[in-house]
Amino acid sequence: MIQTEIQRKALARTLNETKSKGFSYLKFITAVDYPDHVQVIYMFANLQTAETLNLELKLHKTDDDLWIDSIVKEFPSANWYERELSEMFGIKVMGRSAKRLLLENWNGTEYPLRKEFVWGNEYKKVE
């Protein structure tokens, strides 16, 4: 697995390079909420060589920094993953035409996979 940290500005350029190297299959996009930042993970695969490439993007946890550019144009399969990111982590995805979220009835003021969102009291009990 190749792992690279990228800058948000360089995302489009990196994606084109990624594609030209044969990593044309998007496996998934997901995010992790760390104490000081949110990390977005893009996982690509080269279907011929079965290699995988992992691009990581660090976002600060402030409202004006929590956004990424949509990659739907380059990778149409990113659509549902981006919807999931904005719904579960509150990451704004810029440049998307479809605004519909994935789970739809979620009110969108709290983001379930962020650590501020506590699952009942059980988490504390186990601790």
């Binding site: 994935l102 739809e104 996979l113 059980e122």
Partner: peptide
């Protein structure tokens, strides 16, 4: 339209051993 069976397992797993 999906999401009718969303159980939040990923979140739930963060609270389980």
């Amino acid at each position: 339209h999906v999401g009718f069976l969303h159980r939040g397992v990923e979140k739930l797993c963060e609270t389980r051993m």
